[in-house]
């Protein structure tokens, strides 16, 4: 099949960038979206042109590296998956596909479809941990935890830090990302000890970095490839009020 690709090309963080159009033939419906881009890149290299830069690694939807904005959807028009799991089967012969990098003040474009998500790491560094030194842990079963809470904590912890929530949010807010970590640690007994300091520090850093505010639109939840729920944001809010 043949597709028309409108891909955002931007040399580096300082340049302006614009769409480039590629009519790309020979796309197989069995390809994943990223494999289609690989094939395009092979073609570009062979023609002596510069390949499209994009982040990717595990190609099985768990590392959180990949992510691009396809036809108005972060990651994928099909909900619940990362870009690497998006199959070309979803598209039709002759489709025009617009591909942009994720856009947010906090996610500056590095090149083409690659963005800098180090702001996420900064939020985690602010307090996304339990202060326990190696070797200082008690026996695992000495800290029992309700199964319900352990399961919920797992659901929150399955966030892959890809940034789709920020990309989807009209405000480029990182509340879903932050709330996933806050929820995970708030639900576990071992995480309660530092709960107040954690939420204060992490919210404060998130704000300083310049993420937008939460308008409870739910776009983040709709586009999250791991199904992180908005209930996490409500819990984050509760945890925040409790911290004073």
């Amino acid at each position: 099949m043949k597709v028309r690709l409108k891909i955002w090309r931007q040399k580096n963080s300082k340049s302006k960038g614009a769409f480039a159009t590629y009519d790309f033939d020979g796309v197989s419906p069995e390809m994943s979206f990223l494999e289609m881009l690989d094939a395009l890149n092979t073609k570009l290299v062979q023609e002596g042109r510069e390949p499209v830069a994009f982040d990717h690694d595990c190609r099985e939807g768990i590392c959180g590296s990949c992510g691009m904005y396809i036809n108005g959807y972060p990651h994928s028009p099909v909900p619940g998956i990362t870009t690497c799991h998006l199959s070309m089967r979803y598209f039709n012969d002759g489709d025009t596909i617009t591909v942009e990098p994720w856009r947010a003040k906090t996610f500056p474009v590095i090149k083409d479809l690659m963005v800098d998500r180090s702001a996420f790491d900064k939020i985690q560094v602010a307090g996304g941990f339990i202060s326990v030194n190696t070797g200082a842990a008690p026996d695992s079963n000495s800290i029992p935890c309700r199964k319900k809470h352990a399961d919920e904590a797992f659901d929150s912890a399955s966030c892959i830090g890809c940034g789709a929530c920020v990309a989807a949010c009209k405000n480029a807010s990182a509340m879903l990302f932050l709330s996933a970590k806050i929820s995970q640690l708030a639900l576990l007994p071992q995480g309660r000890i530092e709960a107040k300091e954690r939420v204060r520090e992490m919210v404060s850093v998130m704000d300083e970095l310049g993420f937008g505010n939460c308008s409870n639109t739910g776009a983040c939840e709709a586009q999250c490839p791991k199904g992180i729920k908005l209930t996490n944001i409500a819990r984050l809010n509760r945890e925040y009020y409790k911290a004073f």
Partner: peptide, 18 residues
Amino acid sequence: QNWIARPVAYKAPNRSDT
């Protein structure tokens, strides 16, 4: 603040379900 958080807008309209 929300507008400032995304200084460069998407060219394709955001179609995420809200």
